[in-house]
């Protein structure tokens, strides 16, 4: 297995494991049988900081469209709605993160997965995801600094 990739967010190293795939909206999708296990990338978690609350607005086994709102997250630094990464079906939610969302911070690529997802679409490879991060990092920083007058 190839080495994990790294993306530098300032001085912070966001680790992008090479054993899984990615979406434009900063989720990882790890093939598990016919499904994907989906979670926040280290990039997402770094922007969120400590996750306090996670909630889903759709039921398990809901067919969703790309960009459909499916839930929300609140953390010490941010608040956000959550959106489907692709057209597909949200199969089931990880009960453990609903119970204690801090697992997202302690084990975001493992126990902190969010939900299982079924989709026929082709997610990004780790290299493609890194390329997306590189291409948008400046604009993302400007966008974030426009919202808060402090460095991340």
């Amino acid at each position: 297995m190839a080495d994990d990739l790294l993306f530098m967010m300032g001085k912070y190293e966001a680790r992008i494991p090479s054993d899984r795939l990615y979406s434009k909206n900063h989720l990882w999708l790890k093939p598990a049988g016919d499904l994907y296990q989906v979670g926040f990338t280290a990039y997402s978690v770094r922007l969120l900081k400590d996750v306090y609350f996670l909630g889903w607005s759709v039921d398990p086994s809901t067919t969703v469209r790309y960009q459909q709102e499916i839930g929300e997250v609140e953390s010490s630094k941010a608040i956000s709605s959550l959106y489907a990464p692709f057209d597909g079906r949200v199969v089931d939610f990880n009960p453990r993160v609903l119970d204690d969302p801090s697992v997202i911070n302690t084990d975001g690529y493992g126990q902190g997965w969010l939900y299982t997802f079924e989709s026929a679409e082709q997610p990004l490879t780790p290299a493609e995801y890194i390329k997306l991060l590189e291409g948008t990092w400046d604009a993302t920083q400007r966008m974030l600094k426009g919202q808060v007058n402090e460095d991340l």
Partner: peptide, 17 residues
């Protein structure tokens, strides 16, 4: 003003249309 003025809104990054 912004409702979530104390927190940043990452919805755009997480895929908000």
């Amino acid at each position: 003003g912004e409702v979530t003025s104390l927190k940043i809104d990452l919805s755009k990054l997480f895929g908000a249309p």
